[in-house]
Write a protein that binds this DNA or RNA. Structure first.
Lengths: 336, 336
DNA sequence: TTGAAAGCGCTAACAC
DNA sequence: GTGTTAGCGCTTTCAA
């Protein structure tokens, strides 16, 4: 079908190896030879056949980013960064949707794709530390997010305890006294995602306020619908909250919706804060106070660490913590 | 590195071809042989090396979905469907981000990836009909969206004229008399995206209302920021609009934001409608009236047509029109 | 600085 | 129903 190295070699009157060297720049090639080869390449419109290259090299140049849902803007924004970073390093990034399901995450962990990708970036939500520890696959792996900690793989995540502590302290500083948490994971034995609740709790304790389980609303998932439902529940309490920290911006937006429908004023009656800083929160009514993790850095680091592993880096696994900052908007009182 | 066909063949005491046949099921294999081979595969944990297979077959099993932005929920939702559909047909879908840029779209059209993908689904926004007609690459191509029409490729898109006509007629039926359009493409020579304005215009004419260019606000892109800016501009007019149809939900949400900041009541003072039906609009305050295209069908059809082409379908290119429906929500007066 | 040639793992044409 | 083998396009070792 296409033009191959051989065609170029014939056209330029050189050997296959020489053309290969011109293309890859591994070994020095004489200037006049290089020019002849380059001309042949341009004239014939040669592009390397990647399947052949991969077969020979034992690598595909593909890496996967496995996230729970593409339709969560946080992950879409992250993927956006990661795709660019990967391209810059000569890799193609492909997306896997785990739908937050255990079996999907396990299948990926165990290297279902081992012959198609060179490495995997995974944001686990349904599996826990033990599943990751029990993994047998050899494929390089980088973890992102707050799902799993303390495993022998590179891990990129902000300090989630500090993040939710910061957000909660902000609500405390506003003078709020009944601060709820929306979007707790179901209380099972997984380690997953309890860090944000820990930060919330720590901030309350620090302020001398009680940690009241009735104000902690669990949700099945972390979407808008879940946030709305949980908020509706909180509003039925005898003493409803005067502030809410949501697990993420999406649940916070669901909460805003429930509050609007109930005719509760935000921030006057209830202040709301989320975590993630998705663009949607800069345009919601009211705009959403949130914790903004450095997504650029998370995406960059995840891809860089993975590529380094693929290319032989053997340093011990590291846990990197990109920074975050509090962004105050209308939902917690800022008018601008 | 991994286990190869040869290993299995040795273990099971058969030839390479037989193992290949067990794996692929092309030729019948004796029952006892099949079992021995299958056992060897299970024991050794064999998975085919895709690079080798692709090299041999001349296909990679990869298709690309090229969209202007991953962070636009409409495309994220579409990609979600397409990924699943592709997986069901034995293909892996990878995402290309064109950022709505001309050069990116042209590069893809001309087959930059020709050796890595078997086909391309493209949502063009920056290029026009002529660029598509002038394309030289051989790679199967399916177009989606309202960017380019009347080209000799399969094309999946809703009837955009009818869609915006329907939305506009809805605003007319509400009794609105100064209906603006937010998110017109810049007035250049491209065919791109003028269909939605045509539908808007047709509905006005049908209602005996003037098409007033001052009420048509162009935007550079189609994001929330663009919608907000355009709406702010419309509010400065001597006679501001009492309704707005936005190019898409994202610009509509930007418009909602501008209205909220200006203290204009929606829908009382200004009714707002968008197109796309992204989840965000079901949770905005107020919730957003919109045109809901059948995204499932768009994603499914695009992938199916492409795969059919890749596998040799030679029927003449077809233009398929999935359905859409009007979804009335608070921003145009529905209270539920 | 350049060339010859082996071989990555697989599929498919051909032979039995 | 099963086996043998050529060769997809490339990288890389060895030799010149």
């Amino acid at each position: 079908m296409g033009v191959s190295l051989k065609d170029i070699a014939e056209r330029a009157g050189v050997s296959l190896a020489t053309v290969s060297n011109v293309v890859n720049g591994y070994r020095p090639v004489g200037e006049s030879t290089r020019q002849r080869v380059q001309q042949a390449i341009d004239e014939l419109g040669y592009t390397p056949n990647l399947s052949a290259r991969h077969l020979r090299r034992g690598r595909t140049g593909l890496i996967a980013l496995a996230i729970p849902e593409l339709t969560n803007p946080y992950f879409a924004e992250l993927a956006d960064v990661a795709i660019r970073e990967a391209a810059g390093l000569g890799y193609t990034l492909l997306m896997e949707n785990t739908a937050g399901e255990r079996t999907e995450e396990l299948t990926l962990l165990d290297g279902a794709q081992r012959h198609i990708i060179d490495g995997l970036i995974l944001s686990p939500v349904a599996i826990g530390r033990n599943e990751v520890l029990g993994r047998r696959a050899q494929l390089p792996l980088v973890l992102i997010g707050e799902g799993v900690y303390d495993v022998p793989y590179d891990h990129i995540a902000i300090d989630n305890v500090a993040a939710s502590r910061t957000a909660t302290a902000h609500l405390v500083a506003l003078g709020r006294r009944r601060i709820a948490f929306v979007g707790a994971p179901p209380w099972d034995d997984r380690q997953s995602a309890h860090l944000r609740i820990r930060g919330y709790r720590e901030a309350l304790v620090e302020a001398g306020m009680p940690f009241d389980l009735r104000l902690v609303a669990p949700t099945a998932q972390f979407g808008r619908t879940d946030g709305e439902r949980a908020m509706r529940h909180l509003l039925t309490l005898d003493e409803p909250p005067d502030a809410v920290l949501a697990y993420n911006d999406l649940t916070a937006i669901g909460a805003l919706r429930a509050l609007a429908r109930a005719g509760v004023r935000v921030p006057d009656d209830v202040a709301v804060a989320g975590i993630d800083d998705i663009e949607e929160g800069r345009f919601s009514n009211p705009t959403l106070t949130t914790i903004a993790p450095d997504k650029r850095e998370i995406g960059r680091l995840a891809v860089r660490r993975l590529v380094a592993r693929i290319e032989g880096d053997a340093r011990p696994p590291a846990h990197e913590q990109p920074t975050f900052r509090l962004v105050e908007r209308e939902s917690s009182g800022s008018t601008r």
